[in-house]
Design a protein around this nucleic acid. Sequence first.
DNA 1: TCCTTAAAGCGACGACTGTTGCGATAAGAT
DNA 2: ATCTTATCGCAACAGTCGTCGCTTTAAGGA
Lengths: 210, 210
Amino acid sequence: METPAPTTRFADPPAGTPRRPGGRSARVRRRVLDTVITLLVERGYDALTVDAVAERSGVHRTTVYRRWRDVGGLLADVLAEATGDDWQPRDTGSLRGDLEAINQEVHEALTAEPPLTGALIAASFRSPPAAAALRAFWADRYERCAVVVARAVARGEAPAGTDARALLVAATAPVYHELLLLRSGADLTVAAQAARTAAVAARAGAFVTA
Amino acid sequence: METPAPTTRFADPPAGTPRRPGGRSARVRRRVLDTVITLLVERGYDALTVDAVAERSGVHRTTVYRRWRDVGGLLADVLAEATGDDWQPRDTGSLRGDLEAINQEVHEALTAEPPLTGALIAASFRSPPAAAALRAFWADRYERCAVVVARAVARGEAPAGTDARALLVAATAPVYHELLLLRSGADLTVAAQAARTAAVAARAGAFVTA
DNA sequence: TCCTTAAAGCGACGACTGTTGCGATAAGAT
DNA sequence: ATCTTATCGCAACAGTCGTCGCTTTAAGGA
């Protein structure tokens, strides 16, 4: 004659936001996320299973499944934690130089071993939370890079009204495309070439929208 | 006192190339590949398991596993079959128009429902055969598109020595980037904008390598 | 300090994945 | 027509994935 026990717990917050975020939950979260990074670095993406994370971290399988649902959820949480860093684009003195510097970092991230970025992207195709986290990460990055365009406009390297995002996408997209999709064994010249092209197009006013 | 039976069959050709490609093997292949496409269209990528394909096609699980190994192998075979079509880029009379037409097709492919292209790309991150097939497909497409650049050079819209592949990648990469990675709800203007930018850069000689 | 109950731990389960050994069938050569 | 053997069908298996009902622990409020 009591109220029936709820069949599902954790109804409202789907993952990562316990209503008692204190001591134990915090410790569990920390141990799990640390383990995710460790496993990813040591054994790569394919070895990153929920079971492996659970065993290695000493947290029970069921707990991981309930709080993070799957590997994508785990990666999303790791990524969310990493998004709030203090990264800023370098200031090299020219638009082309700035874009080249950005593209070099993109190139490094995409060719790093183990392929952490690649793992996140692969996961984003299977897990909506991972996709959302990655989208947020990139939105943040592109926003911070807008200052590069502002500086270029101030120097007269691009006309006023230049669409910063479009310019940045044009500069970086070829690097992602070659390395991630076409998987050509592209070296750093791709990064430089794409940056140069975007700078030329910007000067010609190709990114002025209105 | 006979030679011991080999424990593994299908040693040399890993997939899809039986040494007796005749009647039965051909029928099995056809039924399986048709089923892959059907399932992909009807239920999407996540429902595309080896078991589902086996059951639906009436071919035994074991046979599918032996010939195609996994879902990636199945998709790779489907893709290989689709690569040999007679596709050609449209001739609109201008570089910008040609690039726009190409980008429109890319846009369509990436936003099609169900997301067949997306499924292939997702699979390419997990299966080397699928990745190889996709790479071959794109290499073929970019090669066929080179004629667009040749026409542009002939019309004087780009200087001689323009790197066709670099130009085409610059034109198309932003569309893939926005739709696949950034997942912004980008409409066709992205396609047009990227084509326009690439055309401007080409005219300015941004793709002349030497 | 005590109480309520959110969250973690536990064991078992059904479903699915991929493999193996063996027998049955038929492709392709003679 | 006959024979060899590549390929397919079959059944059973271990391993993994994700879930569920239940118990135990401890977070956070009184």
